[in-house]
């Protein structure tokens, strides 16, 4: 299963490396959102700094939804669901591989967004260990549920707006927890972040298990 996962992960990364849709479109979109927040809040850096955790995570979540949609599109282009079934490959392995791929892209998106927010909002990202740890766990959680939802919401005549409608409410606790944990980290009170890290860990673990259980059912259905 892990072998399948790694193979799928490498396949998705190499396809993306050749097409560069994420690099050329999704990453710039993230930048645009961060800049727009600066415009929307009248470039008041005190305000922007105070709101940084929320603004940062909202922009990352939008970009992650795009990345998830991209991962499903790669699979759809090749009609890979059918192929995987014919070849009798463990669906949970495919699932893990896709989650890994989306999470890898997500890390890139998060890094770009964090750097641009820190520079544009003139904020110091104190406690980088806590912040990046939270970012990794939140990234895995969103990818874990996003990969399944993308499989539900794509194909045939589903419109593009369906995926955000499905994803964003489900991951809303992740947004809340990640923003609160970042708030605690930036305010130099890392102990306050613990309950939120717990929620993030619980969310990621639960949805990884759920995803591994249901991904095969979704593929065949």
């Amino acid at each position: 299963m892990l072998r399948v996962a790694v193979a799928v992960w490498r396949k998705d990364l190499s396809i993306e490396w050749r097409s560069r849709v994420l690099l050329n479109q999704v990453v710039p979109v993230t930048l645009v959102i961060v800049v727009l927040f600066g415009f929307g809040l009248d470039a008041r850096t005190t305000l922007l700094r105070a709101a940084l955790p929320g603004l940062y995570w909202v922009s990352v979540f939008f970009a992650l939804t795009l990345a998830v949609a991209r991962a499903a599109a790669i699979e759809g282009e090749a009609n890979a669901g059918e192929l995987l079934r014919l070849l009798d490959i463990t669906p949970s392995g495919v699932y893990l591989g896709k989650v890994l791929a989306v999470a890898t892209w997500g890390l890139g998106i998060e890094a770009v967004a964090a750097a641009s927010a820190a520079i544009l909002f003139n904020a110091a990202l104190v406690d980088p260990l806590l912040l990046s740890g939270v970012a990794v766990v939140a990234d895995v959680g969103v990818s874990a549920v996003g990969v399944v939802l993308a499989q539900l919401a794509t194909g045939e005549r589903a419109s593009e707006s369906l995926l955000p409608l499905l994803t964003l409410p489900v991951v809303s606790p992740v947004l809340l927890a990640a923003a609160k944990a970042w708030q605690a980290g930036l305010a130099r009170t890392p102990s306050l972040a613990f309950p939120w890290v717990e929620i993030l860990l619980a969310f990621s673990c639960i949805y990884l298990v759920v995803g591994m259980l249901v991904y095969g059912i979704v593929l065949e259905g």
Binding site: L166, V170, P173
Partner: peptide, 15 residues
């Protein structure tokens, strides 16, 4: 599948 995913989410949201 969506209904189950939503259901699993409810306690997490609540907490």
């Amino acid at each position: 599948v969506w209904a189950l995913i939503a259901f699993v989410d409810v306690p997490i949201i609540n907490q």
